[in-house]
Simulated scan of single mutants.
Amino acid sequence: MSKLIKKVFLDNCPVCDQAHEVKEFEDDAQVIIKGEQITYKERYFYCENADIDESEFIPARMANKNLLAARDNYRKKHHLLTSRDIVDLRKDYDLSQVELARLLGWGEATISRYESKAIQDESHDMMLQLIRKDPLTILDLLERNSSKFTDSEKKAIQNKVEQNLESYGRENLSRQNLTSNYVGYLDPSDQNGQTSLNIDKIEAVISYIASRVNNLHKVKLMKLLWYIDSISVKQTGQAITGLVYRHEEMGALPIGHRNLVALNNVNTREELSNNGYEMIHFYPSDKVKMSVLTKADKKILDTVIKKFKDFNAKSIIDYMHQEIAYKETKPNEIITFNLAKKLREF
């Protein structure tokens, strides 16, 4: 179904040759990429002065953006970095497109093509992913391709890597701490909703909720996470986060919840309640890559947020205590996701 995005004034409408306001719409479209049918959001203009059969038009620049959106959906489907991911990666180190290509030993136009139209192959994507996960890789590549950079360029890159390493060290350590709690739950199973622990999604989910729920505190967040994963399992057969939950007095609580809260990219503040108690308040984080959340993920998140947005901690605990998944497990037992099938309808 078409969705009106905005209205734009054109000095010379290519359909009617007049200066007037046109409407910009967005609609689902499909295209074949590398033999696969990919669904994406296509944008187009609508001229009300033209006959109905000739009223829609797509300028060249918009057509390029549409094609890029389709290619990015292909990338997401195959777990490749999107064009936006590559742009963000390059900006993390203040590198131009040519500089990043030189650093990797690729043709100078390669990064430009990946950011605008071409889909990277798996070997190139692996290199980009490696740089994204470990700043030290940049230094190794810089040494290998040092002849392609001036001394001042090398110094600038080294300084940026040093800045990023401090942040990377904190982030990596916080992730290792949470991952250590999940050594016994690495393989997809009914305990983790057939999903291995996905810290990128955990961070994105928390930030997404925090941007839409005021006064988001730990007790409420932990219940929202359980409902999100349970509904996802019920609808798709797989959880979103890969977290494993135990039956606790206040409802479902993820294993390693203290390390979860301490993740470097989870934005929290300790604040005093009206009663003088210290509470952990969650806020959106600008460090999180929200692109890891799919449209289906966000739909599930929105469903849970709509249901529980105005619940306080006690209300959501009481509500969860009535779930069969909670009633049929004992204290400290893992709440397996086969019980998600018995989740009450919202």
Rank of each mutant, 00 (worst) to 15 (best):
D200T: 02
R61L: 05
Q176T: 12
Y283P: 11
K307C: 04
L343H: 07
C47E: 01
R102D: 13
A262K: 09
L80D: 00
H247D: 05
A262P: 04
L243R: 04
E166G: 09
H78Y: 07
P135W: 06
D190C: 14
L339I: 11
N192I: 15
I300V: 03
L343P: 09
K342V: 08
K306M: 13
L178W: 13
L67S: 09
H247Q: 04
E249T: 15
E21R: 12
Y245W: 08
D85R: 01
Y277N: 07
K23Q: 13
Q191E: 14
R170V: 12
K234N: 13
L89W: 01
R90D: 03
K234F: 11
I119K: 05
S211E: 06
D53N: 10
S285R: 07
T236C: 02
Y93K: 14
S196W: 04
M62G: 03
A19G: 15
H20T: 12
I324T: 12
Y168Q: 04
S55N: 02
A118I: 06
V219I: 15
N265R: 03
R269F: 05
D27L: 00
K6S: 03
S232Q: 00
E115C: 12
D72C: 05
K218R: 15
Q37P: 05
Y182I: 03
Q120D: 14
A63Y: 08
K223S: 09
F149R: 01
S96E: 02
Q238W: 10
H20I: 10
T137E: 09
L89G: 00
E171R: 15
A325E: 13
I317L: 09
S315M: 03
A340R: 00
A262Y: 03
A63F: 09
S55L: 08
D310P: 04
N215I: 05
D318T: 09
F57C: 06
L141Q: 02
L139E: 02
T39M: 00
K41Y: 08
F57L: 07
R132A: 08
